[in-house]
Simulated scan of single mutants.
Amino acid sequence: MAGFPFFLAGIFLAVSLVHRRPLRTLITAREKMSWTRVGHGFVAWFVPWFLVSGLGQYLFYPNTFSFNSDLATFALFVPLALVLTAIQTTTEELFFRGYIVQGASVIWANHVFLAIASAVLFTLPHLLNPEASAGGWLTVFFGYFVGTGLVWVVVSLVDGTTELAIGAHFANNIGGILVINMAGGAVTTPALFTVSEYHATLGAISVLVIIPVFLAIAYKVFKHDKASEPIFQSDRIDRR
């Protein structure tokens, strides 16, 4: 994750110097970013992720679970993980759900086109992850394209901001880094629990269950804020 601060700096320089816009416009067209909405996204994704993916893995494959008894190392690792993961997930959201979507809207503002374009571009770099090789098309399609690609960009287009997606992305990654980590995965960490085997079918089924629960919590439990203009519109406004 050491490269993500530089990635974030590159996005900032491109938006501020080339496009002459605040970085905030990749998140929302409002005057201020809603951290409450980010928190809603975090809770809405983390709760079903933990209950479905975490407990599901434990119930079906209990022998693959192990507890990290080295709590001193875990405690030292927590602040580093929180900071670096927040930078990584926010940077990816700014780029894939913000910059890419707004840029693609110049070509065609159709929501279906924007969602698919963003999801495909988000999936491509994740093909290098060990999970993609281990899980094959199930992981690539359900885990990356649908679960963490398409759903988050659709939510961003509907919500008019990337706030929910920023919270959900952080919840997804920090859960896998601090709570339940997979041995041999893209990031190996001293999490509270470690899973020794990756089961692609369970992962795909989990995604299909998590998505509707995430949407229900985000829009039924927390309700829906008054939507700002769609995120791709802010670019047009600034260029008038």
Rank of each mutant, 00 (worst) to 15 (best):
L59V: 11
G10W: 00
L178E: 01
F74N: 06
L23Q: 06
V83R: 03
I205D: 02
Y144I: 14
S66K: 10
S69A: 15
T189D: 06
F193K: 04
R239C: 12
L80A: 14
V83Q: 01
F67C: 14
H199F: 03
N129T: 13
S53T: 11
N68R: 01
F46I: 06
V155G: 09
A191R: 00
V209E: 13
S206D: 13
V179C: 10
V101S: 05
I116E: 08
A218L: 02
W49G: 15
T139G: 10
G176C: 05
T25S: 12
T188Y: 04
A119R: 01
S206E: 05
Q233L: 13
T25G: 12
L202E: 08
Y144W: 10
G160R: 02
I166Q: 01
V38M: 01
T28S: 09
Y61D: 08
G184A: 09
H40V: 14
S206K: 05
P79C: 09
A109K: 13
F214A: 10
F214L: 12
F232Y: 02
G203K: 02
L94F: 00
M1C: 11
V179F: 10
V78D: 06
P130E: 11
L164Q: 02
F232Q: 10
S105Y: 03
P48L: 09
D159G: 04
T188E: 12
F7D: 03
G149M: 07
T91Y: 02
V106P: 05
R239T: 15
W45Q: 09
G143L: 03
T148L: 14
R37K: 06
S118F: 00
V78R: 04
Y61H: 10
F67E: 12
S16P: 00
A168G: 09
L71M: 13
T189V: 04
G147L: 07
V38Y: 00
N63A: 15
R239W: 09
F170K: 06
S105F: 02
T90P: 03
A2I: 13
A14Q: 04
D159H: 03
S133H: 11
V213T: 06
L124H: 05
T91Q: 05
E31I: 08
P230T: 10
G98L: 03
A168I: 00
V47G: 09
R21G: 12
V187E: 13
V151R: 03
N110K: 11
Q233N: 15
A81C: 03
S34P: 00
S133Q: 14
R37T: 10
A75L: 08
S228A: 15
V154N: 11
I174T: 07
L82Y: 00
T36C: 10
H40K: 11
E92P: 01
T139M: 09
A216K: 07
L124Q: 05
I174M: 07
D235P: 13
R236V: 15
N68H: 05
A168K: 02
G149W: 01
V209S: 07
F96S: 13
V207I: 10
F232V: 11
R30S: 06
F232R: 02
R236A: 14
Q102K: 02
I87G: 01
T91G: 12
M182W: 15
S133K: 14
G135W: 04
D159W: 01
I116M: 11
R20A: 08
E229I: 15
